[in-house]
């Protein structure tokens, strides 16, 4: 088999994978729009079946269950309820469905953790972390390129970088908290995250843009 032939097989395989993942992204955006337009419960159930177990994993990763066994499932309900109620604000030109759902789960988890702590204040996560993010229309084009790069490169990350990155990005832990938990110097945690971000082609400094 010629090298050119191998390359053409590889690239068509790559093209197919990319189409599949972008089709999956479109599918969830369609479902969110069906919920917004017609309160479509079948579309909502499909969203629930896919995302609820991920929201629960996200709740468990922050140790929410240590403050009450029922709390992770309660967070799942709260996040899915917020998705139902806010669906009309979702704009597929601005963000992938998964990004929008992640930001709702993040904000809800922040509010839940604050409510459980002795500390209370009147400011809600939605007031600080704007769900619309970068409000530029067609920002989705740039963001879907980011997601494709991350999906492609994630498997290539060394285990130590991937592990630290997952903790810092998903588990509600600061770099310092991850360093303490893993018994690593703070500088090591910071440099592993930066190396991982570099491999995933995420910008590292404001001036890179």
């Amino acid at each position: 088999m010629s090298a050119a032939h191998v390359i053409s097989i590889l690239s068509s395989k790559k093209a197919r994978t990319m189409t599949e993942s972008s089709q999956a992204m479109e599918q969830w955006a369609d479902k969110l729009e069906a919920v917004a337009r017609r309160q479509d419960t079948q579309a909502f159930e499909a969203l629930f079946n896919h995302f609820a177990p991920l929201i629960k994993a996200f709740a468990l990763s922050s140790g929410l269950q240590r403050q009450g066994d029922h709390l992770p499932d309660e967070l799942v309900q709260d996040v899915m309820l917020a998705i139902w109620r806010k669906a009309a604000s979702y704009d597929r030109r601005k963000a992938a469905a998964s990004t929008w759902i992640f930001t709702i789960a993040r904000n809800q988890r922040i509010d839940t953790l604050r409510r459980l702590s002795k500390y209370q204040n009147d400011i809600s996560a939605d007031e600080i972390w704007d769900l619309e993010g970068d409000t530029e229309l067609f920002g989705e084009i740039r963001q879907s390129r980011v997601q494709t790069q991350v999906r492609d490169q994630l498997k290539e990350l060394p285990v130590d970088q991937r592990q630290v990155m997952a903790k810092v990005f998903l588990e509600d832990k600061s770099h310092q908290e991850v360093a303490s938990e893993m018994g690593l110097p703070l500088g090591t945690v910071k440099s592993r995250v930066r190396l991982a971000m570099k491999k995933l082609k995420l910008s590292l400094e404001a001036l890179d843009l």
Binding site: Q147, L170, L202, L209
Partner: peptide, 18 residues
Amino acid sequence: RERVSELESATAVLFETQ
């Protein structure tokens, strides 16, 4: 804002691979 959007998009991929 663009950097935060980029980080959120990347985190959503990690979120989906849990």
